[in-house]
Design a protein around this nucleic acid. Sequence first.
RNA 1: GGGGCCGUAGGGUAGCCUGGUUAUCCUCUCGGCUUUGGGAGCCGGAGACCCGAGUUCAAAUCUCGGCGGCCCCA
Length: 487
Amino acid sequence: MSVQEAKSERLESLPSKENFSEWYHEVIQQAEIMDIRYPVKGLYVWYPFGFRLRQLVYGKLREIMDRDHNEVYFPALIPETELEKEGEHIKGFENEVYWVTHGGLTPLDVKLALRPTSETAIYPMFKLWVRSHADLPLKVYQIVNTFRYETKHTRALIRLREITSFKEAHTVHATFEEAEKQVRTAIGYYKEFYDFLAIPYLIIRRPEWDKFPGAAYTVAFDTVMPDGRTMQIGTVHHLANNFARTFDITYETANGEHEFVHQTCYGISERCIAALISIHGDDLGLVLPFEASPVQIVIIPVLYKGREGEVLELCKRILGRVKGFGYRVILDDSDERPGAKYYKWELKGAAMRMEVGPREVAENTVVVSFRDERKKFKISMKELTKEKIEEWAAEMKERMRRAALNRMREKIRYFDSVTEVKKWAGRGVALVHLCSSTECGDTLEEEVGGSILGRFEEKPGWIDADVDGGCIVCGGKGYLNAIARTY
RNA sequence: GGGGCCGUAGGGUAGCCUGGUUAUCCUCUCGGCUUUGGGAGCCGGAGACCCGAGUUCAAAUCUCGGCGGCCCCA
């Protein structure tokens, strides 16, 4: 390989996003989100930069949850006796549980599971916490790690043996209807969260065979990744009184009777960050909404010999002013050349860049560029106000939201023949009419090599297809379903 | 469950078949000079053969075992 070739390879070191799998793998490392070199399969290390992004994203999630939940913390270890109480629930997880079997060299009488999810840690305590109707509703959440022994291909932030950032909420209500109301509320929270990240989603009720083990029903948020596969990025479960019966969680009504409670739980994991990276990123790296960028604004000085002082002086004036507005801003005065810095900060998703050289000093101006558009324009120092930056941030988010939605829409199509669905499978989401029978579901999944995501809980306005229609397999009464290959 | 491939610096690699001098190249990193409006250049430095046993005068290279990773099929 000649030096010339080596150099051009370096220039394209981030693979094109067309090759999504490789792009994702590389951008996670190069942008310093996760270090994938930890010597256990499926476990990854958050770099400081990645962890900062995590804090910003989860900060928003916390802000939303804190409105009417209390934050709690339950233990990571669950005794086997509790974990196995709910038959259907444990069946859903038994092949994926990590067990703690020894204390030192002494085998434990009761094995301890590393939580694969926390219902069986939390609900025995709910039994103690809930006595009277006056204790209801009870709404808590925690942000914790969970463990699952994944045997398939693991991938940073997407398929993990340790989920490091599982936000799980658990609520307890007097009646099925009240719990159902909470399901609606939770869906509203998740919409707000993903709208904040400008990530488009589909809200879908999972088929019977794919609901959360132990739930009455499951509503999921799915987004469509650049390769056409869907990724589940949030779930809301109505548990009815299923767990209440198992864990004997009852309350005393106003007239002294004892009733089982009704519960919900809903969760979002670090897949929300995988989606953020994947949905908005481009060939140069991360593209992040202004509010979620660890570095919102980067100032790049263009230094010519003898003019360094005046250029840096203007840079510092800008730095001081923008910092005063309360934004996360960096003056990159390292001794790389400006071009190298542009690439570096584009890779890391700095939302706005300000360039300052001798020309700007002479004119008292600053050159501005937005990460999503990458066009440059010039404004006077007088125009550089907090209001202006807020306006830019809002416009940028709207551009990102619209672009992401358009990309998703292109990957979703309606079909009325199995042959056509088969051709489309692997490229995106197919919408079909399907009846409720397991047989027709199995047949379709097998034929096209995808998974049935379920029916729309809320059908977006931009989808024309009718909700009702003849089943694509048997011709019977069917409903609009989505089918896709999934992460 | 069955089959295949691979472990060489922080990252990516050549060398292994056919054993032999100081282990190749790119990147990263450190020091210096120089340069700076889209990944500059030159000079100098640092950094690696997964672990164990065996064969041999001699092992990154061959053999066996271990550990780790990846892929395909069911």
